[in-house]
Design a protein around this nucleic acid. Structure first.
Length: 849
RNA sequence: GGGCGAUUAGCUCAGCUGGUUAGAGCGCAUGCUUGACAUGCAUGAGGUCACUGGUUCGAGUCCAGUAUCGCCCACCA
């Protein structure tokens, strides 16, 4: 045994990290069969951002499970991914190097990237997609290194040999393969349809990426002229869309307007004849009860347009400006085309607000604007990363069917074990509220391309109904660089030739196959068979509707199974103002700073104290408590292991009682941990441990030193060692450094490969232990201390007489702890007195001198 | 507007299937250098368990409602 004279936490992290790495403590042994494996679908952090306290919380939670399951004898598959796919990286690489992704360019395999690393280069140099990906790799490799260092420092027991990046070749291959199979099975389709569109990023977005923001707007009351001379009034917040108006709509039962239904009215300024129709979605309570249907102002317009079979008159362009159209041409009928074209010319080329202002002036002049516009607050749909409201724009997109799988997905959601269970409601709510299939294509450049080409007919028009697909063995492909089988590069873009699909996939199309990517799907069937479907998906609650939902969807459609059996949802870290940490002072509190200041074990202790699903308050005080616990473990261990007596059979009733109590703790902590309640497991171990040092250690200290002979000492030291051995293992998942340190003093190998404690570890003595003995000893010791504290004397102060008032059963047990109590309390003699209540009362005789 | 969660000591939180006087840690107060630990130890003072009803022999715990806070979803005429 090699035990330091003065144990300390300093230096433990560097020391053990190096050792764990060198000895492969956390390496996954892929010889184990699936039932002996516990596999984790680790969330890949976005490498274009930085890690914050929230990551520390949730990644620690995952690591606790990993360590627990590893100690329980399962081979833990705990990979790490880096999310460098998508818009954040695209923008970062763009700004950092002064480049842009230009997918039409051919790949240059010998590109000299070092030339880009001059800060004065800001000219948006175009790069091929493959070169852009490589450049991304150059930038993110540094971030990934920093992230890995932090995660190692935090002691995540990840197998660093199993990593992936979401833009990497394996991820692209898996994403493309998944897509091709969806296509082959009819789950993916392409369609020209109105979809939510971001006018700044100029791409379609999916329902899951949309958020509502409260915005100020104005209701304008506007008159439409009836052919018989009267008017119909509507209210709209978007008068600039009047030229796109294709109908008015009222509720079928709205008697005020019943006579109007079926008639034709003229739009103001543009004099376009539009029908008045009836539809149940029209709300009589809103505005005048008459709604203007435009192509397209919002998603309700899309519904009306589709269900009422209306024509489309689209004026909104993909950049959010009003386009030029010619009234009088087919589809753009007007009773006064000249006036209509003049009116449109006034707003053409303008964006939202400006166009609105202009058309309001025109409506005022024409007398169609009634009264003053009413300022209102209303929710407006935004792309979650966007700055301008979304428009509904018709375009060709790829979709994955979700609506028709609603029931299957709900059933899968019910099969999944949610921790905590109430989080399932978010999934169910989202699935039930789905209103569109998953729009999976993005008109961006940096991401996984669709592995799709289209034949061009003799006119050069693309054939979208039977796309050309590559053999899976060719994946990943870039359709703008690679050529479909049976064609030559020269046929690209030629009539009778082919064209590549220019779009990339939604970043979630890749993220939703992280279990497959990490498991080596098709690339490594042997690994896949041992780890998939996985056991655990850890994540936070705000991405249940995206990451969790899409992953369940993909696994259902491809594997007809769940991607994992359990999902653990961590909460957020809230600052003292109860605001989400990353949004308030996330930049001032850096995870590395915390680890350095308090120590990783201490920070992990804070994280482990928070239950799954519950938001944790950022509390450095709690970290200090964790540090105190780690130090206490060092000292109590040194004390226990420093006993010179030879440990022997545990014969003393007090020792057996303590072990019996510990056995109870082991059983309860194991049950809690197995049920993903790590906070409870920690609390149980910790509560026992502090009582162990405060009471048990004090009670047996003198006996362990040999005050009552060899066998008494042997029993005490034997019990102490057993308890320490078990306690260290109970704490190992929470405090990996300090427990490894103490373990190294007297045990071979890593504690993190040791077996999780079991009831048998407490030995035969514990089986005969009576919990009441330990309790009684602690009660009396506390009472004696209390008296000394009241008398303001030292705890070592000598006492003549202690009288124990208690019930007969407890008085009977007193003989088991009497000698230890006499030593621990420095008491001369103990007298017994019968009492009615089972509570212990001790009265001290006057303290000696 | 719909849903989920929270509300227990000054602060951060436990309190599992309802059962004697509601717990812990921090902070605070008062003491104590005792042969593991002053990065320590002991003792103590702090609570009408958000509110209102109800069920029950008995409610922090179950039910209904109210309030406040947080989150998710819906809401563009």
């Amino acid at each position: 045994m090699s035990m330091p004279e003065k144990p300390s936490l300093d230096g433990l992290e560097a020391k053990w990290n190096e050792w764990w790495q060198a000895s492969g403590t956390y390496r996954f042994d892929r010889s184990k069969a699936r039932e002996r494996v516990y596999s984790i679908d680790t969330p890949p952090p976005t490498v274009s951002g930085s890690l914050h306290v929230g990551h520390v919380l949730s990644y620690t939670h995952t690591d606790l499970v990993a360590r627990f399951q590893r100690m329980r004898g399962l081979e833990v598959f705990y990979p790490m991914g880096w999310d460098d796919n998508g818009l954040p990286t695209e923008r970062r690489v763009q700004n950092y190097f002064g480049v842009r992704c230009e997918p039409s360019l051919p790949y240059d395999p010998v590109y000299d990237y070092s030339a880009l690393e001059r800060p004065e280069d800001r000219d948006q140099i175009p790069l091929s997609r493959q070169n852009f990906i490589e450049l991304c790799g150059r930038l993110t490799v540094e971030d990934e290194k920093a992230f890995e260092d932090l995660f190692r420092h935090l002691a995540l027991s990840v197998d660093w040999d199993h990593t992936y990046t979401t833009i990497g070749e394996r991820s692209r291959r898996a994403s493309q393969r998944a897509f091709l199979r969806l296509l082959a099975n009819g789950h993916a389709y392409t369609a020209e349809a109105p979809t939510m569109w971001d006018v700044d990023f100029k791409t379609a977005v999916a329902q899951a990426e949309i958020e509502d923001r409260e915005q100020e707007g104005q209701y304008h009351r506007i008159a439409f002229d009836r052919e018989d001379g009267g008017t119909v009034e509507i209210e709209t917040s978007r008068p600039e869309l009047i030229p796109a108006c294709v109908a008015l709509v009222v509720h079928p039962t709205d008697e005020r307007y019943a006579a109007l239904v079926g008639s034709t009215v003229l739009t103001p300024l543009f004099r376009v004849p539009v029908p008045v129709m009836a539809h149940a979605l029209a709300d009589p309570e809103k505005g005048t009860g008459v709604a203007m249907i435009c192509t397209f102002g919002d998603v309700t317009d899309v519904t009306w347009w589709r269900e009422l079979g209306l024509p489309a008159r689209v004026i909104m362009q993909k950049d959010g400006s009003i386009g030029k159209k010619t009234f009088g041409e087919p589809g753009w009928e007007s009773r006064d085309p000249a006036a209509a074209n003049a009116a449109l010319a006034q707003i053409a080329g303008m964006y939202g607000k400006k166009a609105r202002k202009k058309i309001v002036e025109m409506l005022t002049a024409s007398g169609h604007l009634l009264g003053e516009p009413q300022t209102i607050k209303h929710p407006v749909k935004f792309y979650e990363r966007g700055e301008r409201p979304l428009e509904v724009i018709s375009s060709r997109q790829w979709f994955v069917r979700t609506l028709e799988h609603r029931e299957d997905l709900l059933r899968r959601g019910a099969e999944l074990a949610w921790h905590p269970p109430f989080m399932r409601a978010r999934f169910d709510g989202w699935v039930q509220g789905l209103n569109a299939d998953w729009c999976v294509s993005r008109q961006r450049f940096f991401g996984v391309p669709f592995p799709i080409w289209y034949r061009l007919d003799e006119n050069g028009d693309a054939n979208y109904t039977s796309p050309l697909v590559p053999d899976e063995a060719r994946l990943p492909v870039d359709p703008l660089a690679d050529v479909p089988d049976g064609f030559t590069a020269g046929q690209r873009g030629q009539a009778g030739g082919f064209t590549g699909d220019p779009d990339i996939m939604d970043t979630w199309a890749t993220s939703s196959v992280t279990p497959q990517i990490a498991s080596g799907w098709e690339d490594d069937p042997d690994l896949f068979s041992r780890v998939f479907p996985m056991d655990l998906r850890p994540q936070s609650h705000e991405i249940i509707r995206t990451w969790l939902f899409y992953t369940v969807l993909k696994a259902e459609l491809e594997h007809s199974s769940l991607p994992w059996t359990d999902v653990a949802i961590s909460g957020w870290v809230l600052d003292p103002d109860r605001k989400k940490m990353s949004k308030s002072k996330g930049n001032v509190v850096t995870p590395l700073g915390l680890l350095e200041q308090h120590g990783s074990d201490a920070v992990r202790y804070w994280a482990a104290s928070a239950r799954l699903g519950a938001d944790a308050s950022f509390d450095e005080q709690q970290m200090k408590v964790g540090r105190k616990l780690a130090i206490k473990i060092l000292n109590a261990s040194r004390f226990t292991l420093g006993m010179e007596a030879v440990p022997g059979e545990v014969t003393e009733p007090l020792d057996r009682s303590m072990l019996a109590a510990l056995r109870d703790v082991v059983e309860r902590a194991t049950k809690a941990f197995a049920g993903y309640d790590h906070a409870r497991a920690l609390d149980l171990a910790e509560t026992f441990f502090w009582a162990f040092t405060d009471d048990y250690l004090e009670l047996v200290k003198q006996r362990a030193y040999g005050a009552h002979g060899e066998s008494g000492a042997a029993s005490a030291v034997g019990a102490l060692r057993t308890a320490l051995d078990v306690l260290l293992r109970l704490f190992a998942p929470f405090l990996p450094y300090v427990t490894e340190e103490v373990w190294s003093w007297w045990r071979p190998g890593s504690i993190h490969r040791a077996t999780w404690p079991a009831a048998e570890d407490m030995g035969a003595g514990a089986a005969q232990g009576d919990l009441a003995v330990y309790q009684l000893g602690a009660d009396i010791l506390t009472a004696v201390r209390k008296e000394k504290a009241l008398q303001k004397v030292s705890l070592r102060a000598a006492v003549d007489l202690v009288t124990v008032h208690d019930v007969p059963e407890r008085l009977d047990l007193l003989r088991h702890v009497e000698p230890d109590l006499i030593e621990a309390g420095n008491i001369t003699r103990i007298e017994r007195a019968l009492a009615e209540t089972p509570s212990v009362v001790t009265v001290l005789a006057p303290v000696e001198g």
